[in-house]
Design a protein around this nucleic acid. Structure first.
Lengths: 198, 198
DNA sequence: GTGGCGATGTATCGGTTCGATACATCGCGA
DNA sequence: TCGCGATGTATCGAACCGATACATCGCCAC
């Protein structure tokens, strides 16, 4: 999951760890809070041992225009890494509700094709609907056995589920008919598609 | 966190592992999906070694009215465990946004006093507001540097934050003025309070 | 000018939780 | 009687987190 997100970001441009974390925070900030270094650096290490990225130590001074910086480690994606990313792009994570994998996949929808997008959106909708039904069951069948705070929590959860289902419905409809929101990909500016909607 | 939830449930009545997991799933189901046995059993072990609960193996047949069941392990909270629970009841977890600790605390609000409830609700509100501001910053300042799917994700996250803040405002207002939702506690049926609101 | 302080930057450690899996018993219907 | 889903206990490896340590840089107050 973190592996996927890292590959997705490095696909756009090489980066060092600190910058990677910042970008991850803004890109995935809507679903997860922040990525800790305790996961970031081991994952980078693992990706390198798999041959998906390369590490290059930049000592100082050759950053270019600006003043010297202290030594950093710049990570670059390899061809194997790009292949791995494409593979992960189409795979759904574990089929649980609170899987952060959906948010990460959605954040990189720009690089997936329409079929993949639809499949992932519908999978997510199914899971949220299942959870919604579970919450409705609890609220209708055992409401008298739960205290009012627990009930309020269930109601709020149910509300969030219904809202997300509606959101997903809109996205699916928009994806199916009409032009899907076209994307100005940073590294590969699509030359053949229409004007980007934004 | 799981420790807290387990103590809270065992506070109501002794239970065995499978039943504990089911209750946890419905009680906390609004915030987290399910608790895995891979966390449940080690936590139970830890709680027992701390003296907060006792394990008692029930071989078979003495469940009472119904037919014999196969052997189970029934966990019972101790006086130390109740003390530990009260301690955890007032403590806030890590100050991050996606901390599931808030949901768990909220699920056991019935056992906390009004001051504690207010403190935890306001702490949560502060964290969600901070995240909301972060998302607004991203949306206003770097909207042109993000693709439309990422933007849509941020918008949805921002919407969820605003909604949760409103929810928290209502809860805080309801908690401060007027009668807080009184609770029919399963083990200690409050004899001196007014009629429960539900 | 210098002393401190916040941002930048790399890195590890211990601990919690997860998903998958294994295995055994029970009740029930094909 | 055979299988299958619910009940029930349990472990394993891996992912991820929060805290922490440590060093450099730019900048502003004193």
């Amino acid at each position: 999951m973190l592996e996927f997100a890292i590959l997705g970001l490095l696909h756009e441009s090489p980066m060092h760890g600190y910058e990677l974390r910042k970008q991850l925070t803004t890109k995935l900030g809507a679903f997860r809070a922040a990525i800790s270094y305790g996961s970031l650096y081991p994952t980078l290490r693992r990706l390198q041992s798999l041959g998906c990225i390369t590490e290059e130590a930049v000592p100082a001074g050759d950053t270019g225009l600006l003043t010297n910086r202290r030594s950093r480690v710049v990570y670059t994606i390899t061809a194997d890494g790009k292949e791995r990313f494409q593979e992960l792009l189409g795979s759904t994570g574990p089929e649980t509700f609170d899987d952060p994998g959906f948010g990460v996949h959605f954040a990189f929808f720009a690089r997936a094709d329409q079929d993949t997008r639809l499949r992932i959106l519908e999978g997510r909708r199914r899971r949220v609907e299942e959870r919604r039904e579970g919450l409705r069951d609890v609220l209708s069948r055992m409401a008298e056995r739960l205290d009012s705070y627990t009930l309020e929590l269930q109601r709020h959860g149910l509300d969030a589920c219904e809202r997300e289902v509606r959101w997903l419905e809109e996205l699916i409809a928009h994806e199916r008919s009409g032009r899907p929101p076209q994307v100005t990909a940073p590294t590969t500016p699509a030359p053949d598609s229409g004007p980007p909607e934004r």
